[in-house]
Write a protein that binds this DNA or RNA. Sequence first.
DNA 1: TTGGAAAGTCAACAAGGCTGACGTAAATTC
DNA 2: GAATTTACGTCAGCCTTGTTGACTTTCCAA
Lengths: 164, 164
Amino acid sequence: MVETAGGEGLLFLTDEQLRKGIEAMFFAYRGFTADPDRILDGMDYGRAHHRAIHFVHRSPGTTVSNLLAILGVTKQSLNRVLRTLIDDGLVRSEKGRVDARERHLFLTEKGLILERELSDAQRARMRAAYRAAGPSAVQGFRQVLEAMMDPEMRKQYNRLKEGG
Amino acid sequence: MVETAGGEGLLFLTDEQLRKGIEAMFFAYRGFTADPDRILDGMDYGRAHHRAIHFVHRSPGTTVSNLLAILGVTKQSLNRVLRTLIDDGLVRSEKGRVDARERHLFLTEKGLILERELSDAQRARMRAAYRAAGPSAVQGFRQVLEAMMDPEMRKQYNRLKEGG
DNA sequence: TTGGAAAGTCAACAAGGCTGACGTAAATTC
DNA sequence: GAATTTACGTCAGCCTTGTTGACTTTCCAA
């Protein structure tokens, strides 16, 4: 079943196969973001707000710097998004006790409700895809995605995957 | 090794597993676009130009309508991108012979050179990821991605995958 | 006590989405 | 042959989300 090196074993590395993978990523990512985008469309929020909400939920009490590193945007860009979320009462910003320069971020009750709505939708699609493909396909899926990340991003990803 | 249905077999569908998949998609997509983005950064082009170039190369002679359906943007948005590519001599637009309302799109020599540069970079990353993960992982990767697409997008994807 | 890091803010700008309106040429339908 | 529809292009204006650059405030640490 599994091809080994030499000759036919490298057929999965042809330009044609690689192109299919590239196009699969393109179309799948559209599906991946479609449901949350639809939910956010009515509100004053966008994909950037979703990302901030996701990672604040994922690591409650995380700092702004930390979030900047994960999201890979400028602080000005993140600040604009965070500002509206704080003003609207979805995110709470708390001055650090050990280092008072830092701001620790948390979702409020209201923020948790939206997070739940967004992630329910996104998980539903992911669950359907996982179920359709089966567990060993899922394992392969994750392996290829991890290998595709930049090393820096892989660190961030693994830090999230393990610790809180 | 591979879990079967019933009881433990559904462990891959836990919220925790799904969350990991969601985050993997997020970080991997960043890697996926990083190399072309870097190349385009110096020029006056962006990711939107890359997408147009990719699909024109993929289906030479395709019409504007067709491209609109694949890219899922408005004609105004596509037109802005296409306009600059045509003006800069990367894309050639040819009035249809059977239906003169249509415009058929082709890459010029210059366009082919940029396409080659962009896709070489993107394929190199994909190739490294595929090689690292192995052929059966690649199969799973593709299966999950296909299952994640919207049905409309899956049609587009499959049309490209098979026919020219 | 002073230098520098962390955070926040203001201003300006660009890419790339969007809607709406309008124009033109060509094909199709009545 | 006239009316309608289709494919495309374009103008104008708006929004989100990214960018740089300059500046301030706070406050830890050397």
